[in-house]
Design a protein around this nucleic acid. Sequence first.
DNA 1: CCATCAAGGTGGACATGTCAACCTTTTTCG
DNA 2: CGAAAAAGGTTGACATGTCCACCTTGATGG
Lengths: 179, 179
Amino acid sequence: MRDDDHTDGPDAAAGAAPGEGLDGASFDLSLLLPFQITQLSARLAAQARAILARHGELSLPQWRIIRVVAVGLSNRSTAIRKSAGIDKSQFSRTVNAMVDSGYVTLAPCSEDQRQFEIHLTDKAIAAHARLAPELAARQRHLLNALTPDQREMIFPAIHALARAAETIDFLDNIPDPKD
Amino acid sequence: MRDDDHTDGPDAAAGAAPGEGLDGASFDLSLLLPFQITQLSARLAAQARAILARHGELSLPQWRIIRVVAVGLSNRSTAIRKSAGIDKSQFSRTVNAMVDSGYVTLAPCSEDQRQFEIHLTDKAIAAHARLAPELAARQRHLLNALTPDQREMIFPAIHALARAAETIDFLDNIPDPKD
DNA sequence: CCATCAAGGTGGACATGTCAACCTTTTTCG
DNA sequence: CGAAAAAGGTTGACATGTCCACCTTGATGG
């Protein structure tokens, strides 16, 4: 504990039964969907970093970009950025770091002067060749941990949740008291 | 594009058919489980921040801690930290920030001098009272976006994936070439 | 009892992610 | 056409998350 503060009262306000908190009945954090997904996401990221670390210095965002390009979706900066689901800002810094470390080269984009083309160097192609099989094995490992039923509905469920996460319109019935 | 670099060759190495990338067939990012979950997690966090921002200055990690305490699970620092799933370091800084901004008070822990007790102030209790109903509505909104089948298997699936994300033992068959 | 080791908290350093301001290029539309 | 709006990239600032070294306290085993 930091060497100060800690004033007085515990159970100061709100007449809640001791041991039950402010919510009526017992509360189970494991039923909080966003919380569980956040925790899962963090674990998956740690697992991915562990795999990347076995083969080199690629960071997770760097790998995500290399993967999109390697897969041949596009060489246009914006298309790559959107496929990788990375913020403009982070994308700019990550790509330029990869140029400096020799993973990619850039070329002007003829059709749109604002964008540029990204091309993998041999170094990136070699890294992709080493990493892709391991990450594919991991994907199989993860899907194997699910029952067939779960495998079948996991992607639709993720997609449905992603759409539901886009708005806060459901609060229109519960307006902000400050308004 | 940064005003330098961009050397020569596109399709430099690896005999891949143009337009298909280094993987044989067409590759679908939407089937990459960790990627989809990471994207979903980011959207959920953004949604949560939008809700928190309607009612005050609480950050997402601050809210996670307050929620654990409000729910009455424990007042002991370590128990709270582990329930909230937050790193030691971040927990320390977040709690001390909440002390400074008057959301919690600390008290020495008699049974274990290394830990401390965390108690909510009226300010935190009021914030919890305002936010908890909205976040509960959001939870319902998210679950409503799922079919009954999906609702039933989403938590077990998350749990199974979380366990599968704990190891990289599945790579034992594909040892690191550098070893 | 004492020596060790584990557990807990703090702080520094850094990686990752988000937001906003800004400038350039492209697109839209009057 | 030309002005305004939109899209794209860069940068700074900051929030969040992770890792590590360190110190103190507690638990373990001789």
